[in-house]
Amino acid sequence: MQVAKHWRMKAQRYYMGQDGVAPATTTQQNAEDFQFNGRGEIYSYSTVYDAPAGYEGQAPYTVALVKLQEGPLVTAQLTDIDEDELRIGLPVEMTTRKLLTEGEEGMIVYGYKFRPSF
């Protein structure tokens, strides 16, 4: 991921696929800015033992589908969580974390992860 790509995603059209509008009917004009509150619960999770390039140092790590309070599902890693805490339905909240480092001289890519909320 390059710097430009990271910033592009902020403007990239995102539709609330679960219960949202059909994307074909969304235009630049009728799209709205929408801010999620960042809270939800674990819908499913998986602990990854065989990691792809750039993520080897993090393995094993746990990824999840998080069901946001507003309805949509989001795919992200879980962080600050113990293995025995993992369960479907656990309340979680979004937090900003480093996703990966692209080598010694590469980009450090930040993004969202989810952690248990209390």
Binding site: M9, S44, T47, D50, A51, Y55, V63, Q77, L99
Partner: peptide, 24 residues
């Protein structure tokens, strides 16, 4: 690439998410 693999997901991890939910 923008919403799955950037978070470290692989085909097996995607299958893991589906299988866990299915079992539940």
């Amino acid at each position: 690439a923008d919403y799955e693999t950037v978070h470290g997901l692989t085909p097996a991890a995607m299958a893991g998410l589906m299988m866990r939910r299915y079992m539940h």
